[in-house]
Computed example of a mutant assay.
Amino acid sequence: MAGSLCKYLRFMGYDCRSANDLPPGNPREDTDILKIAGEEKRIILTQDAELARRGEGNAIRLVSSDLAAQIRQLVQAGLIHPEIRLTRCSRCNALLQEGTSPEKPNTPIPEDIPLVYCPVCNRQYWEGTHTKNMRDNLLQMVNKK
């Protein structure tokens, strides 16, 4: 439902699941999301007014489809602290580990930059210009009026 938001929340270190990871075409998707949220003690973030209503106190209706507005809404609600942490994989949500992925031992990155990797999907992460750009972008999103 909010794939870009989910990716940013993961970069901020938040444990999140995405409805995009569920099998497509399921007519009971909302019911499944409510069940997963209940079992895993998760908050549902959705633009779907009906799903937010059904989720009662465990759901927040996102009032905009704009990523920056969604992040500002969550910050203003006191649900998140907007800071890029690189502790979770942006693709699969697994906790990152220090070092180089065993699957990608020859990643061409300067030696003085610490590496982290996902033990599930082997994606590599490091502090670079892309991370600085994400931090700058996040700061702009939060401070945008």
Rank of each mutant, 00 (worst) to 15 (best):
R17I: 00
C92W: 09
N20A: 11
R88L: 08
R54P: 15
R88W: 15
R91K: 03
Q47S: 10
G25P: 03
Q76W: 14
Q76V: 13
L22V: 00
L67E: 04
A49K: 07
R72H: 14
L79K: 15
K35R: 08
H81F: 06
I44L: 06
E83F: 03
R91W: 15
I33F: 01
A69Q: 13
S90P: 12
E50H: 15
L86C: 10
E40T: 00
L34S: 05
P82K: 07
L86E: 09
I43W: 00
A69F: 13
A68V: 06
R72M: 12
N26C: 04
D32C: 09
L86Y: 01
P24D: 14
I44Q: 05
A52S: 10
T87I: 05
S65K: 14
P23G: 09
L74Y: 01
R85Q: 06
A37T: 03
L62P: 07
D48M: 06
V63I: 09
L67Y: 02
N26A: 02
V63G: 10
H81I: 08
E39P: 02
Q73V: 08
V75L: 04
D15Y: 08
V75Y: 05
P23H: 04
D30M: 02
T87Q: 05
L62Y: 12
T46Y: 13
E83L: 03
G38H: 08
I44D: 12
L86T: 03
R61D: 05
D21L: 00
P82D: 07
C89R: 15
I80Y: 12
G38Q: 04
E56R: 09
E56A: 11
D15L: 11
L51P: 12
D15I: 10
I60A: 11
R42P: 11
A19D: 03
R42L: 00
A37F: 09
E83W: 00
R54S: 15
R85N: 09
R72K: 13
I36F: 01
T87Y: 06
D32A: 12
N26H: 03
P24N: 14
D30C: 07
I43V: 03
L62Q: 08
P82A: 04
E50G: 11
N58C: 11
A52L: 08
D15Q: 10
P27R: 02
I71G: 01
R54N: 15
A19F: 14
C16W: 05
K41T: 03
G55S: 05
D66P: 11
R72V: 14
T31D: 14
R54G: 13
E40D: 05
E83R: 06
A19G: 15
I43C: 03
A69G: 14
P24Q: 11
R17G: 08
A37E: 04
T46H: 11
G55E: 04
S65Y: 06
